[in-house]
Design a protein around this nucleic acid. Structure first.
Lengths: 164, 164
DNA sequence: CTCAACTCGGATATTCTTTGTCCGGGACAC
DNA sequence: GTGTCCCGGACAAAGAATATCCGAGTTGAG
């Protein structure tokens, strides 16, 4: 029961893109968070494949959010990185062994599977109720409004990349 | 985001032990579910370590539930097998990079971490609301009351182990 | 129009956890 | 005593997660 570590990176990047007003290269996002640039690129590609962000190629290219932050839920990001399949996979044990269950009684998932589905739904519902915009407002409430403009400025700065 | 496959086995075993009226050897539980005996033994040891079931050694030994099924929740079993640590681990990215967050503002978990904690709580609460007894009643509602006595009889039978 | 620089994108190694197995030791009932 | 059963750890194999590279495409400037 462990979620991919890239989810944290992806969520932080989504928040950073909220502050940006122009496309941001993957390498700059990696530098902002001090993580592996190549691996972060992989996560961003997954986000792009899911349609949450879109890539702008070329000289002044980079990544930008495809929708307003209030329409991107945390669940969207989690599912884009970690996959959409539920954590619990039912092997249908009841149909095997010396006392197999009758196939017609197995039209509905077994009680164990039902409990797992309910828990998974509750988990997803909780993540769906929080949007990236909510995260942004939570961060500003915690660190003050200056953090957003600070990130925006740093992302837009030109020569900061290799500066000491 | 994948849960250990042994959780399914453990839950099925817990249900089977509900039907049993005497200790059941691990090998018999493995045969009932047609799974690897040695690996199932590992999961049962974890359940015993968590205090959910207790082992009876010796000739007529085996495993039996330590509490009434109505006092064992699905969450207990899941945590015994899959671990009690939450799926999401916060690396505190905000404290790294060229724009580190002030340490005194990080006394409370970041907004992302908070959302994950809330989802994890919802997930656990859902699993905690279902007991093994609930599973048993669900199974009888689905497969009829005969399934319980059938399992009880098969578990108690002597020479069924290797018979063709 | 040419060029060059910059960007993403997918295919590729490496590490690590999970899964699955095995064997010796100890305890209980018969 | 003897056979059966559980316990605990050590051990090998499989799979996924992690981390990295180089090529394709696009843009903007000259």
């Amino acid at each position: 029961m462990k979620m991919s570590g890239g989810v944290e990176w992806a969520l932080h990047c989504a928040f950073a893109l909220t502050a940006a007003d122009r496309p941001v290269p993957a390498a700059r996002l990696a530098e902002l968070h001090d993580v592996s640039p190549t691996y972060l690129a992989k996560q961003l590609q997954a986000l792009a494949r899911a349609g949450l962000i879109h890539a702008v190629q070329g000289h002044a290219g980079g990544y930008a959010l495809s929708r307003p932050p209030s329409e991107i839920t945390v669940l969207d990001v989690v599912e884009a990185i970690d996959g959409r399949s539920p954590a619990f996979t039912c092997t249908d044990i009841r149909t095997r062994g010396p006392m197999p269950a009758s196939p017609e009684a197995c039209r509905t998932p077994c009680a164990i599977h039902q409990a797992m589905i309910a828990a998974d739904d509750a988990w997803r519902a909780s993540l769906r109720s929080v949007t990236i915009a909510d995260l942004a407002s939570g961060v500003t409430a915690q660190h003050g409004p200056g953090i957003l403009t600070g990130i925006r400025g740093w992302l837009g700065a030109e020569g900061t990349a290799r500066g000491v």
